[in-house]
């Protein structure tokens, strides 16, 4: 069968080519700059797409049947990559407490989904040392709200009732200072005193809290920073390789004057000695300093 160059590369990416074909293609990629560029760019784009799909709760398991009809090839072999992705996504879906309603997860759920499922918990001392801010909602409160929403989400997944109650009570207090008439406050207060009802966090709760904030970008920044602190504490390298983390570390989506340059410098670079581990302590320190600075 005479496959196009593009389809051969696509088969390599999907893991559907034979061993002999794979060796042949790898040998080409090892010497051909143009093919390598096309392959690497496609791999990066697909990878980004997959992460976004998984974060949004979409599991693309197969090509729609219409494709097979149109091309006259009614066969489909599930590539190894997609099988493992489907399994991982399935586990993630279970862990997301049914958040996939309406095909979307809340911002905090998407952020927490970037954390490794293994050893997911709130490390000791992760709670922000915050002083109550009175008056109108500030940027700092939006950032704090994001961090607290992550605390609650992670605590709920880890079934850590003490942390659930602590985070929920702090969210309720923060929202009350912002707008005492918000209905969602009562639900957080209830969790703050009795824990999560029926062991299931209502996915709409976080969405409503996020919507209550006047600075949604700042809420999401707080969510990412707190999740990043947790990831640094657990040495979760995957979190920092995810698309949003790469963007943040590169300055994208960061407020003017706020830089993660020193945190980025704590990450390893390929030219450095021994593909070193990230400097987790520095990373955690920088992220904590930044979050503390932004949330006050």
């Amino acid at each position: 069968m005479n496959l196009s160059r593009d389809e051969r590369l696509a088969a390599l990416l999907d893991g559907t080519c034979s061993e002999a074909e794979r060796e042949e293609l790898l040998a080409e990629l090892a010497v051909d700059d143009d093919e390598l560029e096309v392959f690497a760019a496609a791999a990066a784009a697909l990878s980004l797409h997959e992460r976004e799909e998984v974060a949004a709760g979409v599991v693309p398991l197969h090509t729609p049947p219409s494709v097979q009809r149109a091309v006259g090839r009614p066969r489909w072999r599930p590539p190894r990559r997609w099988v493992s992705l489907a399994a991982a996504a399935g586990i993630a879906a279970v862990l997301m407490f049914g958040i996939l309603r309406r095909g979307e997860a809340s911002g905090v759920a998407q952020t927490v989904a970037m954390l490794s499922d293994s050893n997911l918990s709130l490390p000791a001392g992760i709670a922000l040392a915050r002083e109550p801010v009175r008056g109108s909602p500030s940027d700092g409160e939006s950032v704090s709200l994001g961090a607290l929403l992550v605390d609650l989400e992670v605590a709920a997944r880890a079934k850590d009732q003490a942390q659930e109650q602590r985070a929920a009570a702090e969210i309720a207090a923060l929202l009350r200072r912002t707008n005492p008439s918000l209905e969602v406050i009562a639900q957080y207060e209830s969790i703050g005193t009795a824990g999560i009802p029926r062991d299931r966090l209502d996915p709409e709760l976080a969405e409503r809290a996020e919507q209550a904030a006047r600075q949604p970008n700042k809420v999401h920044l707080g969510e990412w920073l707190q999740a990043a602190r947790i990831a640094a504490s657990h040495h979760d390298r995957g979190f920092f390789e995810a698309g949003e983390s790469q963007d943040r570390l590169n300055g994208k989506g960061m407020p003017p004057g706020v830089s993660l340059r020193r945190a980025r410098a704590a990450m390893p670079a390929p030219g450095e000695d021994g593909q070193r581990e990230p400097d987790w302590a520095t990373l955690q320190h920088e992220l904590t300093s930044l979050l503390n600075g932004l949330s006050h």
């Binding site: 593009d6 389809e7 088969a11 990416l13 999907d14 392959f39 090509t63 091309v71 590539p79 997609w82």
Partner: peptide, 18 residues
């Protein structure tokens, strides 16, 4: 040209990359 040796979406991604 597509012969179904990969996902169509993967194939289209490589095509677009080129």
């Amino acid at each position: 040209k597509f012969r179904g040796e990969s996902l169509l979406t993967t194939y289209l991604t490589v095509v677009l990359s080129r």
